[in-house]
Amino acid sequence: MMSEQIHIIKRKMFDQGYKLTPQRAAIIRVLLDHSDIPISAEDIFMVFKGKLHKMGLATVYRTLELFCEMNIIHKVNVEAGMARYTMSNIQNDSYSHEQLICTACGRKKKVKVDWVKPLEKRIESELGFTITDYQLDIMGLFTTCSGKGCIKKKVSTPSRLSVPSL
């Protein structure tokens, strides 16, 4: 499944005039491996520190910004001042993204809300604005995290990560 997702991303990048370099593919693999929680650029960088000599923190940030622009990933703010990233639904090119994000542990849960479509139509008719993409991140605490039952997740980094050959 991961190779299928990488193939879709490679095609999407090619269609927009970009290449899926080994560094970009490696970043995608980390994001796919950690798709259950938003991950920071620093967390991604730490996976590669000492393993890929040409992968600097600036490269990670530039790549994440490119992926955001291409709607491959989404930027979310889980903690004040800390941007984290999560994969978009690349197999379904629809643009609705609604999710609950726990501010204690970073866990996310995709949800479908039925009141967004009427709002979208109202924005279009009243403001003359056609929505092409949106993301609704609802920040808060899951019941299990509001008490002592929360076990804060930490991003686990794979002990060995190889750059895929594409």
Rank of each mutant, 00 (worst) to 15 (best):
M2V: 14
S3H: 14
S3C: 12
E4W: 09
E4K: 12
I8F: 08
I9P: 01
R11C: 06
K12D: 06
M13Q: 05
M13F: 03
D15I: 00
G17P: 02
G17H: 05
K19A: 14
K19R: 14
L20E: 00
R24G: 02
A25P: 00
A25G: 04
A25E: 05
I27M: 05
I28F: 04
R29I: 14
R29V: 15
L31D: 03
L32E: 03
L32P: 00
D33H: 08
H34W: 09
H34P: 02
D36R: 13
P38E: 00
A41G: 09
E42I: 12
D43A: 08
D43L: 06
I44Q: 04
F45D: 05
F45T: 09
K49E: 13
K49C: 08
G50K: 07
K51C: 12
L52D: 13
L52A: 15
H53K: 15
K54L: 11
M55P: 03
G56R: 04
G56I: 06
L57E: 07
T59G: 02
R62G: 04
L64A: 01
L64C: 03
E65F: 11
E65I: 08
L66R: 05
M70N: 08
N71T: 11
N71S: 12
I72V: 11
I73F: 02
I73C: 02
K75I: 08
V76K: 00
V78C: 02
E79P: 05
E79R: 15
A80H: 15
A80E: 13
G81L: 01
M82R: 12
M82K: 15
M82A: 08
M82D: 11
A83C: 04
T86L: 05
S88P: 04
S88A: 15
N89V: 06
I90F: 02
S94A: 14
S94I: 11
S96H: 09
H97W: 09
E98P: 03
E98G: 06
Q99I: 08
I101P: 03
T103Q: 10
T103P: 03
T103V: 13
T103L: 07
G106N: 00
R107C: 06
R107S: 07
R107Y: 12
K108H: 07
K110C: 09
V111C: 00
K112A: 10
D114W: 10
P118A: 05
K121P: 00
I123K: 04
E124K: 10
S125R: 10
E126V: 09
L127P: 01
T130C: 10
T130P: 07
D133R: 15
Y134K: 09
Q135P: 01
D137V: 11
D137C: 11
I138N: 03
M139V: 14
F142I: 04
F142Y: 08
C145T: 03
S146L: 13
S146C: 11
K148P: 10
K148H: 14
C150D: 04
C150M: 03
C150E: 07
C150A: 08
K152S: 10
K153V: 11
V155F: 09
V155H: 07
S156G: 12
S156L: 12
T157P: 09
L161P: 02
